[in-house]
């Protein structure tokens, strides 16, 4: 029972970017992926969500392989991605954006609505319900994007650079929200982040991606303490 990425190779028209990456995300677990620019982090989440085709290897959720499914079908099976740059529908309202998120949850309803819990904890989203999404600030947009993903009732949630372009204060908020999402939905979360320090602090386990390969993996706290990581990714001499 977990999201399994098995020896995956993928990339754009010419050069492969991922060369045989294997990872695992368990339900309820927060897994961070850190790595430098061009290491293949965005390629990784786009491959898992189906926006990029797998060249070889396999991606599978609890019910079996996802490799041959379209992104829409993967989302409906519960593997939901929040893309880099939020990607809200700019001309729609906040409420409509979140409504669209619910469409991926068709057939997987029942129980408590996870969205309500988030709206309670972050009332700002509720306050903005009727506003057009592109009038929101970057931080608010990220809140909405995360809420929209939760509305899809994810079993596995893929977050691509949620802190990108956010102020330090909003970055703190976003990490708090991610923590809350894990608590309330029990989803396994794969978090790709440039803010390596914060990501490692929040995560249970972590993978380090270098040149399209996993170069290190282990408990996040251990990695965060290792000299190698501190030098290469945390900017500490």
């Amino acid at each position: 029972m977990s999201l399994v990425i098995d020896n995956v190779e993928s990339g754009y028209d010419r050069a492969p970017i991922l060369h045989g990456v294997s990872m695992r995300v368990d339900p309820g677990e927060l897994v961070a992926v850190v790595g430098s620019n061009g290491a293949g982090k965005t390629t990784l989440v786009r491959t898992i969500s189906g926006l990029l085709a797998v060249r070889s290897g396999d991606v599978a959720d609890d019910d079996g392989s996802l490799t041959k499914l379209t992104p829409a079908k993967r989302a409906r099976r519960g593997t939901v991605m929040v893309p880099e740059g939020r990607k809200l529908f700019p001309q729609l309202t906040v409420g409509q954006n979140i409504e669209l998120g619910r469409r991926a949850a068709r057939g997987r309803t029942g129980g408590q609505d996870p969205v309500e819990a988030l709206l309670e904890a972050f009332p700002i989203v509720k306050e903005r319900w009727g506003q057009q999404a592109n009038l929101l600030s970057g931080g608010e947009q990220q809140m909405v994007a995360l809420t929209r993903a939760v509305a899809a009732r994810p079993r596995y949630l893929l977050l691509d650079e949620p802190s990108l372009g956010l102020s330090p204060l909003k970055t703190l908020d976003v990490f708090r929200l991610i923590e809350l999402i894990r608590e309330r939905t029990g989803a396994g979360i794969l978090l790709v982040e440039q803010m390596a320090d914060q990501a490692l602090a929040a995560a249970d386990r972590a993978y380090v991606l270098e040149h399209g390969r996993v170069s290190m993996e282990g408990p996040a706290a251990e990695l965060r303490a290792s000299d190698e990581i501190r030098r290469a990714y945390l900017g500490v001499a």
Binding site: S36, L164, G235
Partner: peptide, 13 residues
């Protein structure tokens, strides 16, 4: 305009 957005701590150094 946000030249360090998306850079690692080391890269922004």
């Amino acid at each position: 305009d946000e030249p360090a957005a998306g850079l690692l701590a080391t890269e922004s150094v």
